[in-house]
Design a protein around this nucleic acid. Structure first.
Lengths: 331, 331
DNA sequence: GCAATCTACTAAATTTATTTAGCACATAAT
DNA sequence: ATTATGTGCTAAATAAATTTAGTAGATTGC
């Protein structure tokens, strides 16, 4: 195991001070009027011995870790794992790394993890906030730690966020189902006050109202088992004799498909929120409201890094359009 | 923004030295014969002011970052995102955090990322090694950085690894297909020398040989497009008039299902490696060889942490059984 | 001719912890 | 009476960088 090269080794080898080497390596050479000859000599030597500054020492001194904390509901959910992939790619481009964790809708765990990440002095947070986290988010703000909310936001906390246009997405999907002459169109959502769920409900309602049609809304318990969820969806669809259903999340749609398949009930027309590998392949293939993960994550990282670098003058709150992808299940 | 409490603030407030506080906080009080009364006084005060040591300073001094580097093929693949979830949970229990990235079968990117993680002084690596990484892995070993390979290993590099019993899994699945009187049973795998692929081929071959049956093996190019992959699978299945197919990965199976669906070719009997949300719901539901992700990740983290803490006396190489889950597609 | 400014650097402080070496006093052993 | 050991703590070194404040000599201004 060969010893790491230190900045002091370089200074000693070239007969100059550590300070000078540091200035040159941190692009302060011009400002400090260091001669071009010396700059070249240092840079060449640094390349030759392959010197890399110790990130820990650098972070301790500057207070910047170049690490971002990613807290999502569940990293195993295909939507979030896709997000995680793109976020990592975008962050890497900008010289940042990601530490992540799943919060599993567990308020205590979420609080603890945010605190742990703060103790680790992450440069910024990317969070899909679950309910009850207002105070914790407020705490991050108080601490002046840069922060972007994602997928949903908190109306009572003024923060950056990047979300999809859920209302428009739900409106378009519902309208699409109504225009196809479906009479009884239901919405299956969650008992959740999160903004994305409220917006999806609003979009559904707006389309239903426009068509002067009775609405059917069933909410499912977030904390219930898959079996409970399936039973409730089945009952809702069958008892109301629905022609079409809009599912507010991909896993609700998956539960619905399972329940209807097991009960051998013919599938109503349907559209689901968020892609899922299953949907393209299912028979019939499932229409979806697809979020533009690449655009979302790009804006997300750009916003976060702008705030970290102090280039963000005011709170940035972005809404990215989503697109309705029509497949067999809705025609 | 209130100022962080430092260890020196505590020492000052209690009129003792920083050293003493450090000893007490790092469980060296007994060894250093510090009086019980003082221990209590310090601990109480620390709790009262909510002091948390600065991780960066601690890491700089001790050389331990309590961060593990996770490098997988593709974090968006449901198998790996599930792995990522369990790994994070297990690591969190042990006081570690995870930084991750996807290597996307890109040798250059992988090397660069491993170097970056080394520069960040991660305490250990969890890697699903792609081909051409022998030298890099060897380099990690030279550096004495703890390391566990996962999902596949490198026969020419003596390292810890935790993998599934791929050979047995493939053998069981193939035997199952043969016992169901399928005559022409094919294997669709990848052009890859990775051990998991070789073992799956071996398991298939062993069962085929046992039944004295001709084998049909098609390998797909790792770097090809989805469309190429689909075309080749379709051709292989149709031209050979196969009764049954074993797919060596979940995404090959997904490609196969897409290809056959689009071509309106009736589905042969099939089994796929690795779970996928799609498989339970597909019509027919797809039989799989399921890897025990919880057991794999548990052993993985236990091994890595044992090595980090110097408790591992010799290389640990584990093979975890997988289980054949029979669904509609194979009966 | 002397102060002011510029040039090209450097010594020392700083960041926040852990760890080594050792001090001063008390008691026990020879 | 002297040496050895134990007790309870601390000063200073250390980890590896960045940053502040400043210096010695050269040049310019009036």
């Amino acid at each position: 195991m060969k010893k790491r090269v230190l900045i002091s080794d370089i200074a000693k080898a070239l007969g100059i001070s550590v300070t000078t080497v540091s200035f040159i390596l941190n692009d302060k050479a011009k400002e400090k009027r260091i001669s071009d000859a010396l700059i070249k000599r240092v840079l060449d030597y640094v390349k030759k011995v392959g010197y890399k500054p110790n990130q820990l020492a650098k972070s301790l001194r500057t207070g910047q870790t170049k690490i971002l904390g990613l807290l999502v509901e569940d990293i195993a959910n295909p939507f979030f794992s896709n997000v995680a992939k793109y976020i990592e790619m975008q962050a890497y481009q900008a010289g940042y790394h990601i530490i992540y964790c799943s919060m599993d809708n567990d308020e205590m765990k979420a609080k603890e993890l945010i605190q742990l990440f703060m103790d680790r002095q992450v440069d910024g947070f990317i969070i899909t906030p679950s309910e009850g986290l207002e105070a914790t988010i407020e705490n991050i703000k108080q601490n002046n730690t840069p922060l972007v909310l994602f997928d949903r936001f908190m109306p009572n906390v003024e923060t950056n966020y990047v979300v999809s246009d859920n209302k428009r997405g739900a409106y378009d999907a519902t309208k699409h189902l109504l225009e196809a002459k479906n009479k009884r169109v239901g919405l299956i959502s969650l008992y959740s006050n999160q903004t994305q769920m409220r917006d999806r409900l609003e979009g559904y309602m707006e389309a239903m109202d426009e068509f002067r049609t009775q609405s059917f809304v069933k909410k499912i318990d977030l904390v219930g088992t898959d079996e409970e969820s399936k039973a409730q969806i089945l009952e809702f669809v069958v008892d109301n004799n629905l022609d079409a259903v809009l599912f507010a999340t991909n896993y609700l749609a998956v539960d619905g498909l399972k329940a209807l398949k097991e009960a051998k009930v013919p599938l109503p027309k349907m559209v689901a929120f968020d892609e899922h590998t299953l949907f393209k392949l299912h028979d019939p293939s499932i229409s979806v409201i697809s979020q533009d993960i690449e655009a979302l994550t790009k804006e997300l990282i750009a916003t976060l890094i702008a705030e970290i670098e102090g280039k963000l003058k005011e709170v940035r709150q972005l809404t990215i359009p989503c697109s309705l992808i029509i497949r067999e299940s809705s025609i």
